[in-house]
Design a protein around this nucleic acid. Structure first.
Lengths: 232, 232, 232, 232
DNA sequence: GTTTAACCGAGACGGTACGTCTGGTCTTCGT
DNA sequence: ACGAAGACCAGACGTACCGTCTCGGTTAAAC
């Protein structure tokens, strides 16, 4: 009649497949892992974040609820893992100019945000993360930081083309890259999900011009000593 | 024995006080309305979005759950109404230059996003809205559109100062204003909530310079001949 | 948006402990079963039928509401199970004569109906059963049919003593037993609960004499051919 | 926000139509009274006791809930009033012999208990009354006592025919009448609602023979010397 | 070729919240 | 004063999921 609830968490082995290869016992099923992530994305498409339940994901994946909880501590972490991979599809093909490159990545990102699984999941996990430090870190490492590569690649190309100057201070360079990333990603997300207006070719072009205009405007006198506070 | 439950069964009069002044019956309590919104904000601060429950809000407000459901169809709509008013606090004091004005509003917005009730609620309702057209519209009308005033005021001041040219095409002017709004709001939100980095004075200054730089780049001259799509 | 709720959706395994011993899954708690029935009787005593709630029973039993609903479809079925066992306490000690035996069982039954849990529950579930075939059947099998044994035992003793003749037609014998049961139980219940008068020793004696008088009166001429419609 | 609930009962004018002809104000609608009782019976037929609600009765009767509560304190009292009148339909036509008279009234009573409004209501209010002294009294005065007239009439006829002796002690006569009433009503109710078997002509005949047999057994001769307690 | 340990499915467990319904009450307006 | 309408507080309803636990059974590495 009286159940004693153990507060001790079931040791949750890191989410990825058999992280620490414990030498004995039955190994975790790798098929189950993939099936769960697929089921999660499918459930997101059909139900959206708020109607998605662990039990539903489990039954879609042909797996017991226990198996999910053995690998992810909660719904949010599962969803982050399930959608993170989608962001890796983003590419930065060389379109010949910085403006065109920005335009291209904006449209790609917009297309990604048009997919229902991304659309509903991204904002939801961000919302959850405002109260959950571990989740925030997981989002940052799994999603945000991985995509900053696009900014770095784009800047290098633009510098090589002579469209942008080189920045000597590495810290400043990093700050600039972060800001560019926030501006691009933020503007697209806000346009698509908050303002709920289409991110079409025209908008992408206007935005690229605005951004590249800002990047290439020399604040004060060109390559000035005050450049350290301005964008690269 | 199959029970069919129509959700529209209970006529949900618009949330605000007696929208359609029904001639008969006891009128809706006005005190209750304010008490509920206050309680909602308090609950958001303490519990965050995901732990906030209708029952808890009701008991904080000293009101029956039924009273909540009579006025709001669900948690999201209630929260939108509860936080919308916070955004109306944003002001655009004249700081003498466009750059300084942008800087000021960015910092104000960042401060707003630092408040736990805004922080947790905004992303959550946006996430919900990806699957709920009515909610999306409510967010737009209650929050987004109301704050575009800031952009319009800022542009007018800048034009009066001669920092920005006048745009003849009204449609183009509106598009530009929308984009500026998305860029500012999006960048701040992304920085604060997704990248989870502080929006401090330095960042605000760098961002303002970038944005104003972009806005003042003459698009009639290279890099692009399609000047008509460029920002004003 | 219309939600269709099928009540049969949750498979309700028969109330008794794991009726069909499903090979898999966690077995149902046996302690819980007893605790729930005890709690139900306690709640009946304190609150009566109309104030008894499932939630209250659950918390008294230290059990979740869901556990109740997993095992009983509704309040009535739970109460039938909870009180059925009380009726099994009825005994028919041999007091030497048919009249005395009837008198004894009448007083026992009256004492049972004086207990608040029986008093309030019996009529309530009977009332419910007028609209619920499954409940009616449950009452019949759990309560009514089990107590007919008393009539059968009493008749056999009386026949052995020579107080009552033997009935050759088994169908007729069964009909007679049923009627005697209805007369005894009905009269006592009606006296106690409807007329709300005490079933005391005097009443029990008068009633026994009336009933035994009727049973031993030969309708028409003794062992007549019309006897088949008369009581045994 | 804070509503002060007055514990004082709204003075409930006796249930019948305009009991005390209050001289002032708008008089109570007499049509409303009948409409409410009709609506109550209709609701009983359709929904049964447990699903019947005050709000539903009110809307069926085209009357406000307030109007119901002004006249009846609760659902049970309303239902008692609504069904009491049905019992007044019972008659005792002279069929020439005591046995035939009993048979007739048994079949009439059985027909009454076959009507869904009586069937479901009678047991329900009796169940409620086990915890409610006022209700018990109302049932007794509105239903039980009024029908005892049938027993008195039947006994007088039987005495006139010489089928039954006269009883000198009035108290004893009253006790006997009560018991006969409980036996008849109890047996029929138990057969019909608890045992859930039909009260058909055969059963009615067997029962009448049993009862009349018991009544006409001379208790002065054996089996008992305590003739004074025996039935008349 | 056994152990052995961790895995697996199924499903019951104690809980929390849901969104609806009803009970009674109170308030307003109109008759 | 009564009546219709409808909002009010309170609280039970029966359901859906939560995250945990208990089963009986499987699976592979370690012995």
């Amino acid at each position: 009649m009286v159940t004693i609830m153990s507060p001790s968490h079931t040791p949750r082995t890191p989410p990825a497949p058999p992280a620490s290869p414990s030498r004995t016992g039955r190994p975790r099923s790798v098929e189950a892992h993939a099936a769960i992530l697929d089921a999660t994305r499918a459930a997101l498409v059909e139900l959206g974040w708020s109607k998605l339940t662990m039990g539903d994901v489990a039954s879609r994946a042909g797996v017991a609820k226990t198996t999910l909880y053995r690998r992810w501590a909660n719904r949010s972490e599962l969803v982050v893992d399930a959608v993170a991979v989608l962001f890796d599809e983003l590419r930065l093909p060389d379109r010949g100019s910085l403006t065109a490159d920005v335009e291209g990545v904006v449209l790609q990102f917009a297309a990604l945000l048009d997919r229902p699984e991304t659309r509903t999941a991204l904002m939801a996990v961000v919302a959850e993360s405002t109260r959950d430090e571990a989740l925030r870190e997981r989002i940052r490492s799994s999603i945000v930081d991985r995509q900053k590569r696009l900014v770095l690649v784009g800047r290098e190309r633009a510098q090589a083309r002579g469209e942008l100057p080189y920045e000597d201070d590495p810290a400043q360079a990093a700050r600039n890259a972060d800001m560019i990333f926030d501006v691009i990603a933020g503007a697209v997300v806000h346009r698509a999900l908050v303002s709920a207006e289409p991110v079409d070719a025209q908008w992408a072009r206007s935005f690229s011009l605005l951004l590249v205009g800002g990047l290439t405007t020399t604040p004060g006198t060109p390559p000035s000593p005050r450049a350290s506070t301005g964008p690269a």
